[in-house]
Design a protein around this nucleic acid. Structure first.
Length: 527
RNA sequence: GUCCCGGUAGCUCAGCAGGAUAGAGCGUCGGAUUCCUAAUCCGAAGGUCGUGGGUUCAAGUCCCGCCCGGGACACCA
């Protein structure tokens, strides 16, 4: 809709125009401050320029009214235009808000270490990534969702060790736990399972640790997958860091050839400072073991080799220092680091009764994603996370969220959808019979509602391009509010405008359904 | 010390590549149900937009300094 209007205005003016939505209804549907910038070039008052511009659009059938107010040019769309768009949308539901952007996008997210179940911090990245993928696909992009499994480092050994020691403790041995080991209920559970699996005798031998590491990793990946499934997220591909090392020699050879590395103090360093990093980074230790960065270098090499148009990584904010070195590595490998975009998911802090809850995997007192899902439901969880920009801190109190389910925006939005569904049933009409009812001669409230319901496509485009999904959640809340208000003010069934209102509501319901769907939430028909 | 995120109503946050009188939800107060789902609606109170400069027709919005809060600064992942 906005695109259509922008085209029309640009055609008339012969230059690029910024269209915005005025804060107040009285200024119409769209407005442009173009006269202010023209004023400088033409050395004329913006007010005069705006007047002239407004006149030139007076006869355009797209608009009902074009007005110049204090230098702004305000456009009000014609009923005919809105009606024809609404009619088209209802007949082509699947096409609502679709585009053909056509980019191949590689999206890596979650990628939590397989050393514990997903906690609430991971959930944020998971939810944001999933929604981004859905939006991207709706807009006609190919999106590959990938999970990078960090299964090669010391942590996996620690996992095995933790299960081993806990198992020994369960069997009555006197056990000394080192500082660096994983705690938490799940370790105990795994240890019990492991005793069943491997037998009590095996816990007499330290050689068991290696098998426990591998076994524990597999068990935890299953757990993570089922946690993700719980909130409707499935990945297209899982990549194992360990397996990537098969290509380490190959990648290293490229780095050597490009003079991207040097030896010092018996270690191998990447010259990442050449491309903006603060310092050079070790990629191979003195004892020959590659560092974590090495895995990421191979990983990005294999990704870029596949030739996607764009790569998006969703990382925890604590990884932000990592961006520079990974981009440097990409550059050294001969690829364009600008194709990599990193979205940082900031910390989630949970309060309980006003008291902060600290999360630490090792301490074992972190809040699990599935615990929160059990408490508030997957839809509420998604909505909360998607309501805030991912790169800002998010704080919420579990107790309040548990208590105030009626203030949950998901209920509010769903309620609007359910009400419409209920009206449709009561009216005994079908969407097909309403399709051709002309939405002409509506009152102002109905016109406003129609316009806003038709706004969805530009909202999702905006939300995707800017990677700011909260624009969509805000929009849905506002649309639902406008609907509820309308509903309370106007009687629908039995009124003269029954058919028109129902058709209008079908558009509203469609926007809600499509919008929620893109957030991974299914709109409810009944509540 | 360096880097990142933030500082807008009592609380949680919006504020759209600078634009027309700073918004929403929750909370508080006061109303609405013989009638389509009151899980709703209507109304009120509540803000020197952390602070000091600068840029311009126009600054929560952009630039610089400072203050406060959180996080990151590994040869751990």
């Amino acid at each position: 809709m906005k695109r259509r209007v922008t085209e029309e205005i640009e055609k008339g003016l012969g230059r690029e125009v910024v269209l915005e939505r005025p804060k107040e209804k009285k200024f119409g549907h769209y407005a442009t401050p173009i006269a202010f910038s023209l004023a400088k070039e033409l050395r004329k008052s913006p007010i005069l320029i705006a007047d002239e511009l407004a006149k030139s659009f007076e006869e355009n059938p797209l608009f009902e009214e074009v007005q110049a107010v204090k230098g702004y040019v305000n456009f009000r769309l014609s009923e005919e235009f809105l009606d024809s768009y609404a009619t088209w949308v209802l007949k082509n539901e699947g096409e609502f808000g679709r585009q053909q952007m056509g980019e191949h996008i590689h999206l890596e997210f979650v990628s939590a270490n397989p050393t514990g179940p997903l906690h609430i911090g991971h959930a944020r990245g998971a939810v944001v990534g999933e929604a981004l993928a859905r939006l991207g696909r709706h807009l006609g992009n190919m999106v590959l969702k990938e999970y990078y499994i960090n299964d090669a480092g010391n942590q996996i050994y620690l996992l095995g060790l933790s299960i081993y020691l806990t198992g020994r403790q369960l069997l009555g041995f006197d056990v000394q736990f080192p500082d660096e080991y994983y705690r938490g209920d799940y370790i105990g559970e795994l240890a019990r399972e492991a005793i069943e699996e491997f037998g009590e005798d095996a816990f007499g031998e330290e050689s068991l640790i290696e098998s426990l590491s591998e076994w524990g990793k597999e068990r935890l990946m299953e757990l993570i997958r089922s946690d993700l499934k719980r909130v409707g997220i499935q990945f297209d591909r899982f990549v194992s860091e360990k397996e990537l090392y098969e290509r380490w020699e190959e990648v290293l050879a490229i780095l050597v050839e490009r003079d991207a590395v040097y030896e010092k103090e018996g270690k191998l360093w990447l010259r990442s400072t050449l491309y903006g990093d603060e310092k050079d980074r070790v990629i191979v230790r003195e004892d020959g073991r590659p560092t974590y960065l090495a895995g990421d270098i191979i990983y990005h090499f294999t990704k870029f080799e596949e030739g996607f148009d764009r790569y998006i990584n969703i990382w925890g904010a604590d990884h932000h220092g990592y961006i520079a070195r990974v981009k440097a590595a990409i550059k050294f490998l001969g690829f364009d680091p600008d194709r990599l975009e990193v979205i940082l998911a900031q910390m989630v802090s949970l309060l309980k009764g006003g008291e902060p809850l600290k999360m630490s995997k090792r301490a074992g007192n972190f809040i699990l994603m599935r615990e929160v899902v059990d408490e508030i439901g997957e839809d509420a969880l998604k909505f909360i996370f998607l309501s805030k920009k991912s790169d800002t801190h998010l704080e919420f109190d579990v107790d309040i969220l548990k208590r105030e389910d009626s203030s949950n925006p998901v209920y509010y939005i769903n309620y609007a959808h359910a009400r419409i569904n209920s009206l449709m049933e009561k009216s005994g009409r079908s969407p097909e019979t309403l399709g051709d009812v002309p939405l002409i001669g509506l009152n102002d409230d109905a016109k406003d509602l129609l316009f806003n319901a038709l706004l969805l496509p530009e909202i999702i485009e905006d939300a995707f391009i800017r990677r700011e999904i909260q624009r969509l959640t805000d929009y849905l809340k506002a649309l639902a509010a406008q609907f509820h208000s309308f509903y309370n003010r106007y009687r629908v069934l039995g009124s003269e405008s029954e058919e028109q209102y129902l058709k209008l509501f079908l558009v509203v319901a469609l926007s809600i359904r499509v919008g929620l769907g893109l957030l991974g939430i299914e709109a409810k028909k009944k509540m």
